[in-house]
Write a protein that binds this DNA or RNA. Sequence first.
RNA 1: GCCGCUAUCGUCUAACGGUUAGGACACAGGAUUCUCAAUCCUGCAAUCGGGGUUCGAUUCCCCGUAGCGGUACCA
Length: 539
Amino acid sequence: MRTPEENRKLADMLFPEVKESPEDVFKKYPKRNVEGMVLRFAPSPTGFIHTGNIYTGFVSTKLAKQSGGISILRIEDTDKNREIENGVTQIVQALKGFGIEFDEGMEDEDNWKGEYGPYIQSKRIDIYHVFAKNLVSKGYAYPCFLTEEELEEIRHKQEELKERTGCYGKWAKYRDASTEEIEDLLNKGGKFVIRLYSTGDIEESFNMKDLVKGSVTLRENDMDAVLLKSDGYPTYHFAHPIDDTLMGITHITRTDEWFSSVSLHVELFEKLGFKQIPYAHLSPLMKLDNGKKRKLSKRKDPEFAVSFYLENGYPKKALLEYLLNIANSNFYDWRIQNPQKDIEEFELKIEKFNKAGALFDVIKLEDICKNYIATLAAQEVYEMSLEWAREYDEELAKLLEENKDYCIKIFNIERTGEKIRKDIAKFGDIRDQLVIFFDELLNNVDIEDIEDRVGKAKQKNILNEYLKVFNISDTQEIWFEKIRNLASELGFEKVGDVAMVLRVAITHRTRTPDLYQVMQVLGEQKVRERIQKYVDMMI
RNA sequence: GCCGCUAUCGUCUAACGGUUAGGACACAGGAUUCUCAAUCCUGCAAUCGGGGUUCGAUUCCCCGUAGCGGUACCA
């Protein structure tokens, strides 16, 4: 064991450039004076934004906002190996695309807003070093010179002995090394990391409250975890208590995978002399893989990349609704009762979060999307489709731009009144729905064959007769009356058969929106043309 | 292996220790002055297993089992 005096000397030896004390640092980060929750979303800039990121980011900003608090975007870029160019901008843009914005934090690679910055960990190295030095001087941390090979060796030995793997207790070779030995290694240029000098006992348990999980029992930590890597960057474990404390975070919302490290974090809060910030561990989004549930992963599940939803044109708000539904499943009941309200008005409750991970259910998502789009006015559908198309389907964008009024009329079919059509889940579906309204698109698709139902001669007969009575200004009642009369005159039992012949002649499809409305939108001339063309084709 | 968390229809979930275990999505059937969609109605379908505690257990306790997460100089 080193004496307090030796530890102070060691601290100076290790961090000669660090002059500040923790108190000095705290002066730059005054206590906040806010009523609500101060929450942070802290992703790594790996260049891959996944649905889980949107989920955590959305939930954090929503909780902060509805409580009258502050939301922060902090970037955790302490792993240089995983960094990617423009990673920060990508995250910011992706979140912004979903309407998720923060009160403080990074705005792109170099800029941030807020008084508690820097909001990117690579620019906070000097801060971490102040606390690391302080910990060393108190004997709560020490330099460790174990190489990767040595660590590997230790692990093998532990496995052979069936002991827990890791750097702890008697296995932590350098925790009680003498100052002389350390100095010697330093002089030889030995690479080192700074480790926690853990005083926990794995045999001891303690209780704590997690805002989502409730009361939990944990073993004390006894691992001499790495605090500062050999490149001087902090590990997540070390940066977390420091950043969250300095930034005045009131509740730590993070994904469940961190739960196992809570006891380590608790020990760090203690050793750093910080007040423990309460945790809320959010269960992760899962997917079914070969019949097994598992956490969504970046590498294995490209379909959970946010870009997937954007490319297919899932309405962003509907995705948020789906995520809200996963967070607090009573959201759906609320939505049924308040079909028109904005999700801003729904109050998310942290204690209602589900404890187990939820499977990501695309079917349910599509249901929400359909319902969402059904609440929009034709004009809005047009605008959103156009916005999407401009980015992902230029040809469609052109079509929409050149036929604005016509398209709005199309989108208005079965959008008013009692029976609202719910067949659009995503803007990627729009193109297919427009096909029957544009000759140039219609000519490229095969005509659905209904000869089995109604023979050619009869079809021809129906159409010729219909052309004689067709009048575009008929009301829907008269329109239908005419079809019914035609059916009985020509000896058809079912009105549907006659309507089907008309439908196929006009749209080339057996399944379309309300035929009367479709014809109204197409206009008299086009309807006559198409019917005539179909008749001529019948030989 | 070890540590921890979780466990209700296929999925997301609800149920002061007392309910015919409820709802939503999906699915199936029916209704609807045209097909599809929508809408309405009906149906299908669950408390992981075993022990306790209790008059009574989905609910509390224990033991299994399963799933998930962690077990890194990744976050």
